[in-house]
């Protein structure tokens, strides 16, 4: 009975667009959903550094190298904002990292695809960050305060990521035949995985959808995906390139682009750990964590020693 009153009060706040803050009462499922979603989002930022990190040492110019470094550094920062937001819900940083390493916690499947050519840096910025931004702009209005604040910060920084990606492709699209082919090839490989980033199709059971009721999310997967397709279908023409979908065409009646079937079998396979790079990504994270252990321990020991000294003085 008591819970019912708390729950009503909680929903009232949500309905009135009052943000929920860490010490406010919240339903356990709201806490859990936020923990899962925010920590997955954080892991995605951290694992997301790996495919691009692959190209830092091979960027075609010093300018491109500096830009890529700055972008990857931003992603580390975004991971930290999000880990901090998830920690306000009572999960320790160490636990989150353990969950990532054990495979219990997930991250966006897109980062389990390999980055084969320089053009992939462009396609990732344009398509992958572009898809992420659609979602993140929506999340600046999410009901949990710390998550919303982290998203505002992230969105401010993210728009350069997408623009630099498009610019990489734009330069290639005006280059030699080989560069043009490389540009088109990267778009072909990243298009479908980028569409999968929005998650499974909306089912009919929308009334059981607590994420919407609690305003953690404000748009469905399919709404966001359609918005993304409409945007990209226009932008790709500026590159003089095409999207690898023969069914893609403007639908006058709907006022949207129609597009082909997504390979959901592939999506679930990658989620389950059978994507091209799942093992490699996790192994790289674990290696970084294990090899950094002595640094973490040394810093702790140094801090303790300094404290001791201060006391003695």
């Amino acid at each position: 009975m008591e819970n019912l009153t708390f729950e009503t009060h909680f929903q009232d706040k949500i309905d009135q667009e009052i943000k929920i803050e860490p010490r406010d009462w919240m339903p356990e499922a709201y806490r859990k959903t936020n923990i899962r979603q925010i920590s997955q989002h954080a892991h995605s930022e951290i694992v997301g550094m790996l495919p691009e990190g692959n190209w830092i040492s091979r960027a075609p110019s010093l300018k491109r190298k500096a830009i890529l470094l700055a972008k990857v550094q931003d992603e580390a920062g975004h991971g930290l904002y999000l880990y901090a937001a998830a920690e306000t819900l009572g999960l320790s940083r160490e636990q989150m990292i353990e969950d990532l390493h054990s495979g219990r916690a997930k991250y966006s499947s897109i980062f389990n695809y390999p980055t084969l050519t320089w053009a992939d840096m462009g396609a990732i910025g344009w398509l992958v960050d572009g898809a992420a931004i659609m979602n993140q702009v929506m999340l600046t209005r999410t009901s949990y305060g710390p998550y919303a604040r982290a998203m505002v910060r992230i969105c401010k920084e993210e728009s350069f990521h997408q623009r630099q990606g498009f610019e990489i492709l734009l330069v290639l699209s005006k280059g030699s035949e080989a560069q043009k082919a490389m540009c088109q090839d990267a778009i072909n490989r990243w298009w479908w995985p980028a569409l999968m980033m929005f998650g499974p199709r909306d089912t009919e059971s929308t009334n059981s959808d607590m994420s919407m009721k609690w305003k953690i999310k404000r748009k469905s997967n399919d709404e966001l995906r359609q918005q993304f397709v409409d945007m990209i279908a226009q932008q790709v023409t500026l590159l003089g390139m095409t999207l690898p979908d023969t069914e893609l065409r403007w639908n006058e009646q709907r006022g949207h682009y129609d597009f082909g079937q997504i390979n959901w079998e592939e999506f679930w396979q990658v989620v389950k750990g059978n994507g091209p790079c799942n093992k490699e990504r996790l192994a790289a994270r674990k290696k970084a964590w294990d090899e950094g252990r002595w640094v973490r321990e040394a810093a702790t020991a140094y801090a303790a020693k300094q404290k001791q000294k201060q006391k003695a003085a």
Binding site: Q40, S108, T203, S205, D209, S211, K272
Partner: peptide
């Protein structure tokens, strides 16, 4: 919650440990 959104991958069907 039965419907999973971007950045919210289900643990039970995701082959989670």
């Amino acid at each position: 919650i039965r419907k999973f959104y971007y950045g919210d991958i289900p643990e039970e069907t995701g082959g989670a440990a």
